[in-house]
Simulated assay, not measured.
Amino acid sequence: MSRLAALPRIMLAPNGARRTRADHPALPETVAQTVAAATAAHQAGAEALHAHVRDSEAHHVLDAGLYRELLAEMARVLPEMPVQITTEAVGRYSPAEQRALVRDVQPEGVSVALREMWPDPGPDAEAQRFYAETEEAGIALQHILYAPDQVTRLASLWAEGLIPAPRQVLFVLGRYAPPTLARPEELDGFLAAASALPEDVQWAACAFGRSEQACLLRAAELGGGMRIGFENNIERPDGSPAEDNAAQVAALVKALRDHASPRGQEV
């Protein structure tokens, strides 16, 4: 069974597909930089890594060889931290290329955006086969959902027997482009729509912009997981530049402790 079958409480997303070191000098681009960022963030409290790989020019790529390199290095340096790869298209990759990556790498976990893998409302035999194959292979698949209507669509596909029961979902709050600051109350719409999903579905949230921490605290209050890192936000809550991914994780862990204590005391 995949170590990611149980959704981690805190998952690190250290780079994403769009930002580079021009945006923040501590953003990892290479495999070595990603492993170093994951190691520091793990020490700060992150339990798993949501990984993107980059080519020699720091462009996001769905490259099976680079992913295998990253997975091997993580297994060597930090074997206790499982890795979820991404199939994010960023306008560059087709659903067929996304499926090919997962079939080639066979990772422990993968994030798949429903709107990218099954973009059209009608039947899609290839997408249907992919979701069934991934379930059969024991790969922990997390459905990435950008709006409550996508949650509703996911629930409909499951109810119609077209995909296996969703086990993990990620609610994306705010937007990268156009820049849209996440709001904690966005969770309400996602969770209302999620009532149509299986009762045991595991959910987490990520949030764009300096409101990231506030949104993740709200997710924790409501029983969800938290995905944090420079993929979504490179600022502290006050809008000043973040130090690095590990510092963001450490600040979230402290805020969770403070939030759990009525007087902000250590617990």
Results as ranks from 00 to 15, higher is better:
1 M>S: 15
6 A>P: 11
8 P>E: 04
10 I>Y: 03
10 I>W: 11
12 L>M: 06
12 L>H: 06
15 N>H: 02
15 N>S: 14
16 G>R: 10
17 A>W: 07
18 R>M: 01
21 R>F: 02
21 R>E: 06
21 R>S: 10
22 A>Q: 15
26 A>C: 11
27 L>R: 12
27 L>F: 03
30 T>F: 01
32 A>K: 07
34 T>L: 09
35 V>R: 01
38 A>E: 02
39 T>R: 07
41 A>G: 00
41 A>V: 04
42 H>E: 04
42 H>K: 00
43 Q>V: 08
44 A>C: 02
48 A>S: 08
50 H>R: 13
50 H>L: 10
52 H>N: 07
53 V>Q: 05
53 V>E: 00
55 D>P: 00
56 S>Q: 15
61 V>H: 05
62 L>V: 09
65 G>T: 03
65 G>Y: 00
66 L>N: 05
71 L>M: 08
72 A>F: 01
73 E>A: 08
77 V>G: 04
78 L>C: 03
79 P>K: 09
84 Q>S: 15
85 I>K: 10
91 G>L: 04
96 A>Y: 07
99 R>E: 13
100 A>P: 13
101 L>H: 10
105 V>C: 08
108 E>R: 13
111 S>E: 12
113 A>F: 11
115 R>K: 15
115 R>T: 14
117 M>H: 13
118 W>G: 07
118 W>R: 05
120 D>L: 15
122 G>D: 11
122 G>P: 07
124 D>L: 00
125 A>S: 13
127 A>L: 05
128 Q>N: 12
129 R>P: 04
129 R>W: 08
132 A>V: 14
133 E>R: 04
136 E>H: 15
145 L>G: 11
148 P>C: 03
151 V>F: 04
151 V>C: 04
155 A>I: 12
156 S>H: 15
159 A>Y: 10
164 P>Q: 04
166 P>L: 00
166 P>K: 05
166 P>F: 03
171 F>N: 05
172 V>A: 13
173 L>M: 15
176 Y>K: 12
178 P>A: 04
179 P>T: 10
184 P>A: 02
185 E>K: 03
188 D>N: 10
189 G>F: 07
191 L>P: 08
194 A>T: 05
196 A>F: 13
196 A>Y: 11
196 A>N: 12
201 V>S: 04
202 Q>N: 06
204 A>V: 13
205 A>K: 14
205 A>Y: 05
210 R>I: 00
214 A>S: 08
214 A>L: 12
215 C>L: 13
215 C>V: 12
217 L>H: 01
219 A>P: 06
219 A>R: 01
220 A>R: 15
221 E>P: 01
222 L>A: 00
222 L>H: 06
224 G>E: 06
224 G>D: 02
225 G>Y: 03
227 R>N: 11
227 R>M: 13
228 I>D: 08
229 G>N: 09
229 G>L: 10
230 F>W: 09
232 N>W: 06
232 N>R: 11
234 I>F: 05
240 S>D: 00
240 S>M: 01
241 P>Q: 02
242 A>T: 00
250 A>C: 02
250 A>S: 02
253 V>D: 03
253 V>L: 06
256 L>N: 10
256 L>D: 06
258 D>N: 14
